[in-house]
Lab assay of single mutants.
Amino acid sequence: MDVFMKGLSKAKEGVVAAAEKTKQGVAEAAGKTKEGVLYVGSKTKEGVVHGVATVAEKTKEQVTNVGGAVVTGVTAVAQKTVEGAGSIAAATGFVKKDQLGKNEEGAPQEGILEDMPVDPDNEAYEMPSEEGYQDYEPEA
């Protein structure tokens, strides 16, 4: 019985440690998101679009440190934060509304985080759909 109880105690310690790591990862992701939003706020009209992409990228980098179902929630929060940063930029006159959601080359930025393969159960990952990809044929 002692062996059984000791095993359960060790398992509990492992769960607590994993929860603490997840909590730490979420806190880091939130900190990076805040950094990115402050970065966007300090940019001029020309830099705002690039700044919004930076927020998304920093958040995406930190999301990889967070495991399990938390990833889905962090990704949703990050996307809403990026959308909010863009709205703030438009409201303050840093950028025109028609410039939001495009990178410096004018290509749409939507789907940055949505296409990231995420499995809350950590069982399997699927690649994003290939609808947006084109076949590449090298020139002879």
Rank of each mutant, 00 (worst) to 15 (best):
D2K: 03
V3N: 08
V3Q: 03
F4N: 00
M5H: 00
M5C: 02
K6R: 08
K6H: 04
K6P: 00
K6A: 05
K6D: 05
G7D: 00
G7L: 11
L8K: 00
S9W: 12
S9F: 13
S9K: 09
K10Y: 09
K10D: 02
K10N: 06
K10I: 15
A11D: 00
K12Y: 03
K12I: 02
E13V: 06
G14E: 07
G14A: 15
G14T: 15
G14I: 15
G14K: 13
V15R: 00
V15P: 00
V15M: 08
V15L: 15
V15W: 05
V15C: 04
V15S: 01
V16S: 12
A17D: 06
A17E: 09
A17N: 11
A17W: 12
A17P: 00
A19D: 00
E20S: 02
E20I: 12
E20L: 14
K21R: 10
K21P: 00
T22E: 00
T22Q: 00
T22S: 14
T22M: 12
T22P: 00
T22G: 05
T22C: 15
T22Y: 05
K23L: 13
K23A: 03
Q24R: 06
Q24K: 15
Q24M: 11
Q24F: 15
Q24S: 07
G25M: 15
V26N: 00
V26C: 13
V26D: 00
A27S: 06
A27T: 03
E28N: 02
E28Q: 12
E28K: 12
E28L: 15
E28G: 11
A29R: 04
A29Y: 12
A29N: 02
A30H: 08
A30R: 03
K32Q: 07
K32Y: 07
K32W: 14
T33Q: 00
T33V: 06
T33P: 00
T33W: 12
K34C: 04
E35I: 14
E35L: 05
G36F: 10
G36P: 01
V37S: 07
V37D: 00
V37Q: 00
L38G: 02
L38M: 14
Y39S: 10
Y39L: 12
Y39G: 04
V40L: 07
K43G: 01
K43R: 14
K43W: 14
K43D: 00
T44C: 14
T44R: 02
T44Y: 15
K45W: 15
K45E: 00
K45C: 06
E46K: 10
G47M: 10
G47N: 10
V48A: 05
V48Q: 00
V49I: 13
V49H: 04
H50V: 03
H50K: 12
G51C: 10
G51T: 15
V52M: 14
V52K: 01
V52E: 00
V52G: 02
V52N: 00
A53S: 10
A53T: 04
A53H: 11
A53Y: 14
T54F: 08
T54R: 12
V55S: 02
V55N: 00
A56I: 12
A56L: 15
E57V: 04
E57W: 06
K58A: 10
K58F: 07
K58L: 10
T59R: 02
T59Y: 13
T59K: 01
K60H: 04
E61M: 11
Q62T: 08
Q62V: 02
Q62D: 01
Q62K: 14
Q62R: 12
Q62L: 11
V63E: 00
V63G: 02
V63Y: 11
T64N: 06
T64F: 13
V66D: 01
V66E: 01
V66P: 01
G67A: 09
G68S: 13
G68A: 04
G68P: 04
A69M: 15
A69H: 05
V70T: 02
V70P: 01
V70E: 00
V71Q: 05
V71M: 11
V71K: 09
T72R: 11
T72H: 10
G73N: 15
G73Y: 14
V74T: 07
V74K: 01
V74M: 08
V74A: 10
V74Q: 01
T75Y: 15
T75R: 05
V77K: 02
A78W: 13
A78T: 08
Q79I: 10
Q79M: 10
Q79T: 10
Q79H: 11
Q79A: 05
K80S: 05
K80C: 08
K80H: 07
T81H: 04
T81A: 15
V82D: 01
V82H: 04
E83T: 08
E83F: 07
E83R: 09
G84Y: 15
A85L: 14
G86S: 06
G86Q: 07
S87N: 12
S87G: 13
S87K: 03
S87C: 12
I88P: 01
I88K: 03
I88M: 08
I88D: 01
A89R: 12
A89Q: 05
A89M: 07
A90P: 07
A90M: 05
A90N: 03
A90S: 06
A91Q: 04
T92F: 02
T92W: 13
T92Y: 10
T92G: 09
G93V: 10
G93A: 15
G93R: 06
F94M: 03
F94W: 09
V95K: 05
V95D: 04
K96F: 13
K96L: 10
K96H: 10
K96S: 11
K97Q: 15
K97F: 02
K97M: 05
K97N: 12
D98S: 05
D98T: 10
Q99D: 09
L100H: 04
L100G: 08
G101H: 12
K102H: 10
K102D: 11
N103D: 12
N103H: 05
E104N: 05
E104V: 12
E104T: 07
E104C: 02
E105I: 01
E105R: 12
E105L: 08
G106T: 11
G106R: 06
A107S: 09
A107Q: 04
A107W: 09
Q109G: 02
Q109F: 04
E110V: 12
E110R: 11
E110Q: 05
G111Q: 13
I112C: 05
I112Y: 07
I112E: 07
L113S: 07
D115S: 07
M116K: 03
M116D: 15
P117C: 09
P117L: 07
P117Y: 11
P117G: 14
V118C: 09
D119Q: 05
P120M: 06
D121F: 03
D121C: 06
N122G: 03
E123H: 12
A124Q: 06
A124V: 14
Y125F: 14
Y125D: 09
E126K: 14
M127V: 12
M127I: 11
P128C: 05
P128L: 08
P128G: 07
P128S: 05
S129W: 03
S129A: 13
S129E: 06
E130P: 10
E130D: 07
E130C: 13
G132E: 05
G132N: 12
G132P: 04
Y133G: 08
Q134F: 07
D135M: 03
D135N: 08
D135C: 04
Y136E: 01
Y136I: 10
Y136F: 06
Y136L: 06
E137I: 06
E137Y: 09
P138H: 08
P138Y: 04
P138S: 10
E139F: 07
E139R: 10
A140R: 10
